[in-house]
Amino acid sequence: MTTLETQATPMTQKSTPTEMTHAVPAQAMGGLHTETTLIEVKDCNLFYGSKQALFDISMNIPAKRVTAFIGPSGCGKSTLLRCINRMNDLIEGVRIEGSMNINGINIYDRRTDVIELRKRVGMVFQKSNPFPKSIYENICYGLRIAGVNDKKVLDEVVERSLKGAALWEEVKDRLHDSALGLSGGQQQRLCIARAVAVEPEVILMDEPCSALDPIATAKVEELIHELKKQFTIVIVTHNMQQAGRCSDYTAFFYLGKLIEFDATERIFTNPKEKQTEDYITGRFG
């Protein structure tokens, strides 16, 4: 956790790019320094085989807030996100340097239990991926694999999670129907409910709305707003408005580098970096 006091840069003044080649957010934080850090990324480099995808990423992601990753396609947003629950372990030939701490514990330590980590860091994918099981069983899945089979507990969790994901009213009469019969938006909220059911600390979302229509998107955004009371949320999005609407902090990535990380408001109204401004105003990307 950082206790660095930083000089708040005057709102009107823009720093020159040369000053900011290594954007270390801690130096540029607006409200960020007052937050409690949950995830601390330090000097993270990631290689897919010989190809480097992330360059020296350092950032402190605050607890119980929504942090958005934005940036053009292929800039490494998903890659970084997937580092946080070690999903990249599944990909052959990935090498990671640097450290990543959650609650002060290095998740890349050899002694880290990946399964335990993933229970604490849930994930919602770009393409909704409900299991070909009933709605009820989808929600229970995380508990069942953890060995919970008590029907009373499961019933309770299912109801709580579905209510938490604002899906309860829509599906309460067909809990035992296949989840694949739900609409796209419902499926995505089911996946969120499924992640919520195991009561993680962090929920990672990789472009959760990119395949949804505007109404379904609005519902998910509303849901994110609710969830941040309880969870730390990191969301990757392509949609600038979405980042603006539902995140507290925004990190802008470009070509595998973290360019700027600050309060969302500040990123959108007064970015320090030229690249950020260009991206936000739609001049490239």
Binding site: N85, M87, F125, N129, Y141, G142, I145, C191, V198
Partner: peptide, 25 residues
């Protein structure tokens, strides 16, 4: 689909559990 496998692993399932409960069926 890979998403199904990842979805299971992301919920804290072990590989064996994923194979038995998701991939096998």
């Amino acid at each position: 689909p890979r998403g199904m496998r990842e979805g299971s692993l992301a919920l804290g399932a072990s590989k064996f559990q994923t194979v038995c409960r998701i991939i096998f069926p």
